[in-house]
Design a binder for these strands. Structure first.
Length: 274
DNA sequence: TTAAATTCCTGTAAGC
DNA sequence: TGCTTACAGGAATTTA
């Protein structure tokens, strides 16, 4: 599933390809994928716009337009944002196609349709709570271990659920939450508020390391994730615990535990993580 | 405010 | 082989 490293990879690839292009045509094939404004207004407002800088916030892609408008893309579970030539065969579950003035197309594809597209001014999207409040970027140098510590203090929910809470830190999903807890040698099911400062510092470093390595390897293609050219990433080949329940821990050799936290599969080592 | 449960959605894999 | 069923989970929404 697309998390911070996967979204960052797509954003880095697409940025130079989209900057300065004009949207000549908008083909909205599955209107419900647009969450704001009404689909008709979405198409009308987007057509003819010039594309500006593309950035990322958490798992959201933010594409600035020439008017003070933002095209927001969230990939959900199975979303793909593909930059292709029009001759490329149209695959099933393609919900939106933007035809650009250089003859290329930007296609949004999403099998499970958990993703979403939004269009509006920043004030409009944030003010109307179409976009949720997001916590700090975990790979931002200004985000320190002590910040994480304060955000976990007083919370009784299992640590992993807070890592997945986008209001606590932005961009972490199931894969990198499990990977970070293992690297930090902390149990994901511990009450978050009881994590000591040294352990929080380890977790903070592990979050950064896991996410930065994921970006370096162009993301984890565990299931559907591909980059803007349709190519898989490599991070799934070096994951330490995610999806490996029952298999031997790479560090101690004992079978990894698989439990359910907040309805999500969680894998960790009962020996190496405390 | 926090936390837990529910909902959305379909390809895949397991079970019979 | 072919059918049914469980499962994967991000985040909005609902409920406590």
């Amino acid at each position: 599933m697309p998390e911070l490293p996967e979204v960052e990879t797509i954003v880095q690839d697409l940025r130079p390809l989209l900057q300065g292009r004009r949207v000549d045509r908008v083909d909205l094939r599955f209107p419900a994928i647009v969450r704001h404004p009404e689909p008709e207004a979405f198409v009308r407002e987007l057509r003819g716009r010039r594309l500006g800088p593309l950035t990322r916030r958490g798992k959201y892609m933010l594409l600035e337009l020439d008017a003070p408008l933002l095209l927001v893309v969230h990939l959900g579970m199975t979303g793909q944002l593909l930059h292709v030539v029009p001759e490329e065969p149209l695959r099933a579950h393609t919900h939106a196609i933007l035809s650009l003035d250089d003859g290329t197309e930007l296609r949004y594809r999403d099998v499970r349709r958990f993703g979403r597209l939004l269009l509006g001014s920043e004030a409009e999207l944030v003010g109307s709570r179409k976009l949720p409040k997001l916590g700090p970027e975990p790979i931002d140098p200004d985000f320190k271990a002590v910040d994480l510590y304060h955000r976990l203090q007083g919370r009784k929910a299992p640590l992993k659920l807070l890592l997945l809470d986008q209001a606590v830190v932005a961009g972490v999903g199931n894969i990198y939450a499990d990977e970070s807890c293992f690297r930090a040698r902390v149990r994901p099911d511990r009450p978050a508020g009881r994590l000591s400062r040294p352990r929080t510092a380890r977790l903070h470093a592990a979050l950064r390391d896991s996410l930065l390595e994921g970006i370096l390897n162009r993301g984890s293609s565990v299931a559907d994730y591909v980059d803007a050219r349709g190519a898989k990433g490599r991070q799934q080949e070096v994951l330490l615990v995610y999806g490996r329940g029952g298999e031997p821990c790479f560090k101690c050799g004992r079978p990894l535990a698989a439990i359910r936290l907040g309805g999500r599969m969680t894998v960790f080592c009962r020996t190496c993580q405390r």
